[in-house]
Design a protein around this nucleic acid. Structure first.
Length: 465
RNA sequence: GCCGCCAUCGUCUAGUGGCCUAGGACGGCGCCUUCUCAAGGCGCAGAUCGGGGGUUCGACUCCCCCUGGCGGUACCA
């Protein structure tokens, strides 16, 4: 049977969440590894949290990452449509079918009643669950109420006894007591399905064979298992991946960390570096290799080897990985990337980038966005100086440079000669020159930079008040 | 509270009963190189494998309990 995996993002955020990118990567790699298909389905059933334009941005971030889907809302496929809001009638039909089978029931409880019920349960230290008030309303009576225009939802009729369990491919068997599983709402009063009905119906109809998703879903999986059983459908394989965390160990959130893929793009991270880093969060390459490509990962990947502990997202290591990728880029490609052609940082001014400047800073930056602060002095004189400039040294350097042929080897010779003659340390002379020209104490190789800056501009900066 | 998942250096991890007085990577520190900063090379510190019981000739590895962290507990996904 052909392997089919999917991610099902909700268009409720400003962009693709890094956590979604992470599960997308695993789903994609596993599908590729198995010669199967990776698809995207948009779960837009919550109208209250819907964000305009979110779907487009999610899709374009996925594309930027290089995670390609063969079926989805933008490119269609044989199981179209791939947007839940366009599949509404399907969920209604399936919910009705469950009612006929008495595996679901109509519920007319108001949200006010549910709220006071929960408060009461909480006060009595009972697990907050639907109390089943509407469970025993005869079908005819319920139908009559509906015909009279009563608002209703459809709830899952969970067996009161027994145990529901499933085998997670990375965690083994997980069991839940039915008595503790809530009679979950399946169809909301607005006619939209909840996540639980939506995923199960669509995953089955779309022939999804492996459900690889975040561990936040473990506790609702028994509801899904029940649904599969009630419909008489074959169970897919489940694999719950660990959640990415903030440094304080809580679930990765936008309040505490950058989470949007677009942020990483703007910061100058390379998609292959981001993917490489994300991969190491979930899985480790044989022999402990740190840097590996998507293709290499696909070759070696096994679902069973997925990590079970939830990792902390560490920007430092991501930066290091990014640097590894940046350093081995051919110079011309590096220039193209750095000049913002691929839409990197918007607040960076990358004019006049040449292979000369690029070669000076390539091993010195870990993200493309650092380019500007590194070579900005080539385009504009410093406004302030990090340390005070020694006038005497400055004059010595100036004199040396004025009558010097403009290439870094000659310049170095003259400066060292002046140092010897005057007794001032050459190190100090170089530092004085650096600060006068760049304003900073750190930067790319000085003399090579000045060669690029030009004699005239350099000398003009050596006149300091 | 209840249910569930998880538990090796600060961080990411290797490790599937003896190869482990626990290996690698990031970060940190030091040295070499050097016009600064990087890069590169070499080295150092850093985990009594959360705690306690078992099982075993032998546990980081298997079982139980505890503790801790996280997740879920919605007409959100």
């Amino acid at each position: 049977m052909e392997v089919r995996t999917r991610i099902a993002p909700s268009p409720t955020g400003q962009d693709l969440h890094i956590g979604n990118a992470y599960t997308a990567l695993i789903n994609y790699v596993f599908a590729k590894k198995s010669g199967g298909k990776f698809i995207i389905r948009i779960e837009d059933t919550d109208r209250t949290r819907f964000v305009e334009g979110s779907e487009e941005r999610i899709l374009s971030s996925l594309k930027w990452l290089g995670i390609a889907h063969v079926e989805g809302p933008d490119n269609g496929g044989e199981y179209a449509p791939y947007r839940q809001s366009e599949r509404l009638s399907l969920y209604g039909e399936h919910a009705k079918k469950l009612i006929e089978l008495s595996h679901a029931y109509y519920c007319f409880c108001t949200s006010e009643r549910l709220e006071t019920m929960r408060k009461d349960q909480e006060a009595r230290k009972l697990p907050p669950m639907y109390d089943g008030l509407c469970k025993h309303i005869p079908k005819e009576e319920a139908q009559k109420k509906i015909d009279e225009g009563a608002k209703y939802v459809i709830r899952l009729n969970v067996p009161e006894e027994g145990v529901t369990s499933f085998t997670d491919i990375v965690r083994g068997t997980i069991s839940f007591e039915n008595a503790l599983i809530d009679d979950q709402v399946l169809l909301k009063s607005d006619g939209f399905p909840t996540y639980h009905l939506g995923v199960v119906v669509d995953d089955h109809l779309m022939n999804i064979t492996h459900i690889v998703r975040g561990e936040e879903w473990i506790s609702s999986t028994p509801k899904h298992i029940l649904l599969y059983q009630f419909f008489g459908w074959e169970l897919p394989v489940f694999a719950h991946v660990s959640l990415l965390r903030n440094p304080d160990k809580s679930k990765l959130s936008k309040r505490k960390n950058p989470v949007w893929v677009s942020w990483f793009k703007e910061q100058g991270f390379l998609p292959e570096a981001l993917l490489n880093y994300l991969a190491t969060m979930a899985w480790s390459f044989p022999e402990g290799k740190d840097i590996f490509s998507l293709e290499e990962m696909i070759k070696e990947f096994r679902l069973e080897d997925l990590q079970t502990t939830a990792p902390i997202f560490d920007l430092e290591k991501l930066k290091w990985i990014n640097k590894q990728y940046l350093m081995v880029k051919p110079l011309n490609m590096f220039v193209t990337l750095a000049s913002g052609a691929s839409g990197y940082s918007r607040n960076v001014n990358f004019q006049q980038i040449s292979e000369g400047t690029a070669s000076l800073i390539q091993p010195r930056i870990s993200t493309l966005a650092e380019y500007d602060s590194m070579v900005g002095f080539l385009f504009k004189p410093p406004k302030e100086y990090e340390i005070e400039i020694n006038k005497e040294s400055l004059n010595l350097v100036k004199n040396a440079l004025e009558k010097c042929e403009w290439n870094h080897l000659e310049m170095e010779k003259s400066i060292r000669a002046v140092a010897d003659a005057s007794g001032v340390k050459s190190k100090d002379l170089f530092m004085t020159l650096r600060v006068a020209v760049t304003g900073k104490t750190v930067g790319p190789p000085l003399l090579e930079s000045l060669e690029l800056l030009g004699k005239e501009k350099t000398l003009a900066r050596l006149i300091v008040q």
